[in-house]
Simulated assay, not measured.
Amino acid sequence: MRGHLSHDTLVEVPAAVIWDIYRSLELGRLLNELLQDEIGTVEVVQGDGGVGTILKITFAPGIPGPTYMKEIFTKIDDEIRVKESEVIEGGYKDFGFEYCGYRLQIIEKDAKSSIIRSSIEYEIDDKLQEIASLVTTKPMEILAVGISKYLREKTSSSN
């Protein structure tokens, strides 16, 4: 069985500004600084933030599901502002998912706002389809809101 979930978060931050954060390791640094209690922590296992970089995300205590996951960046496209990764250890794989991939896309709405589209694609054996309901975009939604709030505050304080 294959599945797909997607969520759009409208943010009052220009697409280029959001993309600068999302395309780099700065996203993990800000997650560690701003959202450790809500999401968890990110650690670079290998790489410099480009394709092939492996991250370990340790989820905050109390979050239902797996305690950690490792993902590898499989695509970073600056032209269409897309970043894709695949879970290689932990995460939904611990529940029997054969594949789990994340996609983040920054879509320009106008000069001052953009949409962060957070998506998950997964594959799981048909016999395990009842656990597909565990899949959620909630951590990515929390991340989008937290990062945009940080950037708005940073922008307003520098004016």
Rank of each mutant, 00 (worst) to 15 (best):
E84S: 07
K149L: 03
S133D: 13
L34W: 00
G146I: 01
K154Q: 09
G146L: 01
G62Q: 01
Q46I: 10
I76L: 13
T137S: 04
Q36H: 12
E33H: 00
E12I: 05
I72R: 15
Q129A: 13
L55F: 14
S148A: 09
G52S: 06
K138P: 03
L55E: 12
I120Y: 05
I147T: 04
G146Q: 08
E79D: 14
E123H: 13
E86K: 15
A15N: 05
D37Y: 02
A111E: 15
T136R: 08
R2W: 06
V17D: 10
E153F: 02
I131V: 15
F95G: 11
E71H: 06
H4K: 14
T74E: 08
L143Q: 07
E130L: 13
F73N: 07
K70G: 04
G65P: 06
G3E: 08
Y102D: 14
D94K: 11
D8N: 15
G101S: 10
V82P: 02
I142Q: 04
S24D: 12
G49I: 00
Q105E: 15
Y150V: 01
E121I: 14
L143N: 05
F73K: 03
V17T: 15
N159P: 07
D20I: 01
G101T: 03
D20L: 01
I21W: 08
V13I: 14
E108G: 11
S148V: 00
G47W: 10
I106V: 15
L104C: 10
P61D: 08
I57E: 09
K83C: 08
I72D: 05
Y22N: 07
C100E: 08
I21A: 07
S157M: 08
E33V: 00
R2E: 15
F73R: 07
S158W: 01
F95V: 06
G3W: 04
I72A: 04
L55N: 14
D94W: 04
P66S: 15
T53E: 02
Q36N: 13
R2F: 09
Y150Q: 02
I142K: 04
F73H: 10
K154I: 00
L34T: 00
D37N: 09
I72G: 04
D20S: 13
R103P: 05
L31Q: 10
S24W: 05
A16P: 01
V87C: 11
M140E: 05
S6H: 10
K56S: 05
G96S: 00
I106E: 03
